[in-house]
Structures are given as structure tokens and as C-alpha cells.
Design a protein around this nucleic acid. Structure first.
Lengths: 209, 209
DNA sequence: TAGATTGTTAATCGATTAACAATC
DNA sequence: TAGATTGTTAATCGATTAACAATC
């Protein structure tokens, strides 16, 4: 029975399921029960079945789940088969690293363009992605479909830039600046990667074992 | 009244509190009530007071919280005043970006050394951090205090490396590989940064608004 | 068939919110 | 003092776990 409102806790587990199912696929595993998957992931079989039941019925009594099929279903729920269009703003060390190493396509994203202000890199390509001057940003957005903007820019300009982009119609932000991006528009989806939050959590766990 | 077992949900909010309090400090704000902080952060005043009460009493009736004092208290709880020793393994694009831009010291971490196998960078310094050959890793760990290892290495070698490091006594891992690091030792603390989990979450929210 | 395992309903547990006496 | 706001206890809400009939 499909549910209407999926809780944040469930949503956050979906990519983890997807990661583990990819893993199993690569290992050639054909079928898995909620119990075995739970052991592998360190969660209960009950939770897994509850989670999946939010989206449909993917298993079979007495058999479990077909790994390849379940992987594909969860991938579909996550939208990896959607081909989102992403542009990157800010091609410093981190932006560069993402362009070079991150497998955007495996998440269903195409990186169509990158923008910066450093003359030394403007006009060049990194991993097939062309780097434009920031001055061309508005024009680009008006003439191309852009679903998500990846923000690897200095913290100081991030909020202003995000506001400007929201006005231009951008509804998705992948934010790497150590800043809590806010938007008054509920249509705007923001996903933050806060390195320092992560490292501080680790620090806490070490200090308070 | 201090609590014994702090829930994961509370721990995950601590760095956020810390971030917002830093922000307020920088803006010169002297005092804040749980209500105002809640508005700023998008959570209830009740939750904030409950969270803080796990660790002590930091406020004053009728006044609220002194921002600088609260910031310092939470910083202390997180261990930012501890000077943890961190070494980085893998100085590719991402490791390089972290060395160059991430403010480790603001999280209470000193980056003492980095390790890689690329001859072109071994022996050089990045932002004051010396890069050694991986062959020197074991020796280094035996002769220096290392609290945390940052893993910015290829996914394929991450688990083996982590196991080896655990045997050498390392108890903290900051893992950037798209792999679910596991350890049978409960003393070992692992904090993952999964870029793809984050991007997939964003994808989900865009596809299912 | 018999054993295994699902999807779902009910029970439990924990986290969030509300309320309020204490007090600055 | 009067108003504001804390820390904490109680009430509510939601998420996780357990149980089990259905069935492959």
C-alpha cells in the first residue's frame, strides 16, 4: 500500500538501500531477504519491509527480493533514470575535484556546464565540461534547462547567488558552502554538504565514547 | 540535569547549533532566547531547551542565553578545543581541495601529515602539510599520535586500508569513499561523507515534490 | 507439501512538543 | 515589581519493532 507522505527518515535511507543493492548486484547476488539485507546494513528486517511498503510491493513471499529488480525500483524512486541537468558554479579545488572524480551520471545527473571568474580556467574543459565566465551565467540559464546548481563558491557570496538563481527559476541546490542556505520558496530544494558538521560529529564521538 | 545517553538526533543537531552560534557571534549578537534561535534555525524553542538540557544549564530565566558563552559550551561539548591529530591518506583532487580550503583548525583538528603514492607530489607541501609516501605510513603511526585518518582514496582499497589502520590503533575515520566502511570494533568511530547519498536525496525531492 | 518470507496491522518505544512552576 | 524566559515534567506524536495471516 503506497503511502502519501514519506518521512524524512525513510528518504534518507533510500540512497543507502540503493548503495547496498548496487553492491550486491556487482557481487552477482540474485536474491536477498529483508533479514539478510538487514544484517548487512545493521537495521531490522521489519524496518526494511516497512520502508519499501511506502512505495509498493517489491518482494515475494517465501523468496525475498530480486536484487536487480529491487535496485532498479529504488533507483527509479530516487530518480536516477531522470537525467537531471546540473551546472556547477565555482571551479576551485573542490569543484575541480567533483568534476574530475564524482560519478554524476550514476546518480542520474548530466553536468552541462561550469562557471567561474578565474581567467586561467575560463574557456577550458574539465572532464568534458566546459567552463564559462560567470557573466554568461544568466544567459545560459535563460537558454538551457537547468534542474540543479552545484554551489562550490566562497561562503560569502553563496546566499546572494542562490537568491539570484532562485529568481531565475532554479529549484535545486547542491550546497557545499559552510552556510545554511535558506529559501522562503517551498519549491526550492536544498541539499547541504557540511564537511565541518560531519567532522564535528566525529570529534564528539571520539571525545564522548 | 545531564543525561547519560545522548540520542543520535541530538548529536547531529549540535554542529548546527554551533554553526548558528558562530554566525551570531560574528554578527555581534550578545544574547538570544531559545525562541529566537528556533526561528532562525527552523525548529521549536522546546526542542532547543530539551537538547541543551542533556548537557547542562546554559541559560538564565528572563534573559535567555549569552551567545558567546553558549557557543563556547557547545564547542567544548563537540571537542573543538581538543586539538585532535589528523592525517590524510590520499591526496588526489579531493584530498588536495580539503588541504587547501577546509578549516580543520576551526573544528579542533591539526593536520599533521598526508600520504599518497604519486611520485609527483611526494615530498611536497600543501598548505603547510607535508606529503609522505604510503610506505612510511606504518612507521609514522607508530611514532606519532594519530586520532583520526581522513580517507580520500579509491573506493577499492578503502576497507582493507581501514582494517589495517584499525590494527595499528586508529580509532577515528573520516571516510569520503562511496563505501560503507564497517568495523567490528565499537571503539572505532566512522563518519562518512557520501556525496552520492546527498545528491540522490536531492534528486528524490525534485522528482517527488 | 513444508518452510520461508512477504506485506501489514498492532504494540512499543523514543523523540518532539506543550505546559508551567521557578526565577532572573 | 512585571515581563520574559528558562529547565523540566507531562502529553503527544511519529517512528521502529514485533507479530502474524497470507502465500510463494
Amino acid at each position: 500500500m503506497k503511502k502519501q507522505n514519506i518521512s524524512d527518515a525513510v528518504i534518507r535511507r533510500l540512497p543507502r538501500y540503493y548503495r547496498h543493492l548496487n553492491d550486491l548486484c556487482n557481487k552477482g547476488v540474485i536474491r536477498i531477504s529483508s533479514h539478510s539485507l538487514g544484517v548487512k546494513m545493521g537495521i531490522t528486517a521489519s524496518q526494511i519491509r516497512q520502508d519499501f511498503s511506502c512505495f509498493g510491493e517489491f518482494g515475494q513471499q517465501g523468496y525475498g527480493y530480486n536484487v536487480e529488480e529491487l535496485r532498479s525500483e529504488i533507483g527509479h524512486i530516487l530518480g536516477v533514470d531522470q537525467s537531471h541537468h546540473l551546472i556547477m558554479i565555482g571551479v576551485g579545488n573542490l569543484g575541480h575535484a567533483l568534476l574530475q572524480n564524482f560519478r554524476f551520471s550514476q546518480c542520474g545527473f548530466a553536468v552541462d556546464a561550469a562557471f567561474d571568474i578565474a581567467p586561467s580556467i575560463i574557456g577550458t574543459d574539465i572532464n568534458g565540461v566546459h567552463i564559462y565566465h560567470m557573466d554568461e551565467l544568466e544567459d545560459y540559464i535563460r537558454t538551457h534547462k537547468v534542474d540543479v546548481v552545484s554551489l562550490t563558491v566562497p561562503k560569502s557570496i553563496a546566499q546572494d547567488l542562490a537568491d539570484r538563481l532562485t529568481d531565475l527559476g532554479i529549484r535545486g541546490f547542491w550546497n557545499f558552502t559552510n552556510l545554511e542556505l535558506v529559501s522562503s520558496n517551498p519549491e526550492v530544494k536544498i541539499e547541504n554538504i557540511h564537511f565541518s558538521d560531519s567532522l564535528l560529529t566525529l570529534s564528539y564521538r571520539i571525545v564522548n565514547p
